[in-house]
Design a protein around this nucleic acid. Structure first.
Lengths: 153, 153
DNA sequence: TCTTAGTTGCAAATGATTTGCAAGTAAAAC
DNA sequence: GTTTTACTTGCAAATCATTTGCAACTAAGA
């Protein structure tokens, strides 16, 4: 859990680890780093194609595997909101919660000290050494909640 | 989150909902209900084959879909500890945390009021209506932790 | 017992991801 | 700057988990 957050950017992180930099990798890294939404492999592939010459999907997957291996990105399921694909985000220092709306598909993030507390409790009481973790909720976001029941909760 | 826990057994739960009971379904329900470990579709299929005449894998999946639809079982990823398969467990009243050991594969469960608190906080502060949620951790269980670093932590 | 809608097994389809391999290329060594 | 070599790419085929279409079967209400 208490992963190091990337110091500068993914590109430098990889170079520091002796990983060869290629044009394809640079594109993928920029996209993951610059995106405000959570991307899956296919979205990355489409965005890459729009930004530059086509990158093969297999290369996208290989780059993601690389980033995962070094703990530079986190792999999310987002409650399997749309198929069984995975979504990726740059690993952050503070772990956070993902809320997925089953109605509109929006992903919301949330941070609370309670989560950190909970992680610590798990480590202590279960003597379990947490390497990664994910807390995801599926349900209705505030907007959709209102639409579903216009009267009251 | 605050799902009703099954009152009696899965069989009756389904019958109450007007679902036709078949021999194949009974086998699958018994297996899920009677198992102490978290089963995936293929394990269910193998266990069913050992217990009775073969049940088709597709039937297993269809039964699981049925149970999911009524909120009678929860689908887990268990940190993708082994492939991308899903694991199933009978829905319980109290939601709990799953700890998956990356080294030995053991799955541990843990319950804490902190989690309930956290859920409430999410519902209030994000005005998000939680339907399901899952909190999973991957790391090292106490035994494997000791094996990895025999000296200290 | 009849009837019928719901269920099964099978094989083929699907979606997401991985892999083998020959050709291409980054970057270390000269 | 060229050579060298190990690493990387694209492509197509393979794989894994799961779903689907369909004809034959069957639970359970009439």
């Amino acid at each position: 859990m208490e992963q190091l957050a990337p110091r500068r950017n993914l590109r430098d992180e990889l170079k520091d680890r002796g990983i060869r930099m290629t044009h394809q990798r640079e594109i993928v890294l920029e996209l993951i780093q610059g995106s405000s939404r959570h991307l899956d492999a296919e979205s990355l592939w489409k965005l890459a194609a729009r930004k530059d010459t086509c990158i093969n999907l297999a290369t996208i997957y290989r780059t993601l595997t690389l980033l995962k291996r070094f703990g530079l990105v986190d792999e999310l399921d987002l409650m399997h909101i749309e198929g069984e694909k995975h979504y990726y985000e740059v690993t952050r220092l503070r772990s956070h919660i993902h809320l997925a709306c089953f109605r509109c598909g929006e992903i919301q993030e949330f941070q609370t000290p309670l989560f950190t507390k909970l992680c610590k409790q798990v480590e202590q009481e279960c003597s379990f050494s947490i390497k990664t973790g994910r807390l995801e909720f599926g349900g209705l976001c505030s907007k959709c909640r209102q639409k579903e029941r216009p009267a009251a909760d």
